[in-house]
Simulated scan of single mutants.
Amino acid sequence: MIRFGIIGTNWITERLLSAIREMDDFSLTAVYSRSEERAREFASKYGAAAIFTDIEQMANSNEMDAVYIASPNSLHAKQAITFLSNGKHVLCEKPMASNTAEVEAMIQAAGQNHVLLMEALKTTFLPNFKSIQENIHKIGRVRRYVANYCKYSSRYDAYKQGEVLNAFNPVFSNGSLMDLGVYGVYPMVVLFGEPVEIKANSVMLESGVDGEGSLLATYRDMEAVIMHSKISDSYVPSEIQGEEGSIIINNISNPDKVEIRYRDGRREDISIKDDKEAMYYEVKEFIDLIKTGQVESNVNSYQHSTITAKILEDARKQFGLYYPADKV
């Protein structure tokens, strides 16, 4: 049984706990919130015995073996390093941190303390992503990767009324690229590695973050196009184009329908049906690694997280988005 603490009493933690409700080796034992009332309410709902309103006290406690961090992006690095330095394993929500320097510092802390650090980017552990990896050879030489994730934010209406919530506040290292674009970037890195060059554009909002944008990544013999938005919806699927056919992916962040369309007109459904919620697989990977004494995932590896962080940071700088965390 792996004892977990959770930082962040929000919808994403609710979703994670729903996904692993039948997992026998996960035990929620501690909850952190800035509000004692909120921490107590959340802990009571999910059966956690300990609550904390101080990160240092939580990290120093013996109530947990690992922690899941789902706080605002700008807090990931400091919080993760605090727990890693106290011998706790860390599952950190995507994006791993505000910039490359923070990601590298987190990795260094994990190595120094011989504990596991993993970025919680769910897509790359899903059965249908693995199906893409296993079947991609069927489309011949890959020439283009197109990832599209545009989803109107539930917080954008408040923004238009003059209320700038965390999702649109640069203080928290947020914006469309970091929050949604990463779902296109990380799978690209896992599938094809580090690009030779990237070019990025965005539509900037008055609050100082990107509302939407696009990224073009150049590889030696192919290119990748990533589109993302928090201020509009898109109903266009993602796609991997090869010389012999294309893989059509209905949802790049959570693919549940994947099909190959060949040049000769044939279609092949390579979808894998399963009854697990999407976040189940990243938690299972994390727990399995702890149980087998490993300190790095081969899927969401340090290399993949570092390359992704470099791409995100380079892209931001190209369209002029800098966070307070970049100046530290």
Rank of each mutant, 00 (worst) to 15 (best):
I2E: 00
T13F: 02
R15F: 13
L17R: 10
S18M: 11
I20V: 15
D24Y: 06
F26Y: 09
S35I: 06
I51V: 15
I51M: 00
M58H: 00
A59S: 14
N60K: 15
V67N: 03
S71Y: 00
S74K: 08
K78C: 01
Q79F: 12
A80C: 05
A80N: 04
L84H: 04
V90N: 04
K94Y: 02
P95Y: 11
A101N: 12
E102L: 08
I107N: 01
I107W: 02
Q112N: 14
L117V: 13
S131K: 04
H137I: 08
I139G: 07
G140D: 11
V142P: 05
A147I: 05
Y149V: 10
S154R: 11
D157E: 14
A158S: 12
K160V: 08
L177I: 11
V189W: 00
F192P: 12
E194N: 12
E197G: 01
V203R: 14
G211K: 03
T218S: 13
Y219K: 10
R220G: 01
S232H: 12
S238Y: 01
S246P: 01
S253G: 10
P255H: 07
Y262D: 05
D264W: 08
R267H: 11
K276F: 13
V283M: 08
F286T: 13
D288C: 08
Y302F: 14
T308K: 05
A315E: 08
F319C: 03
D326V: 05
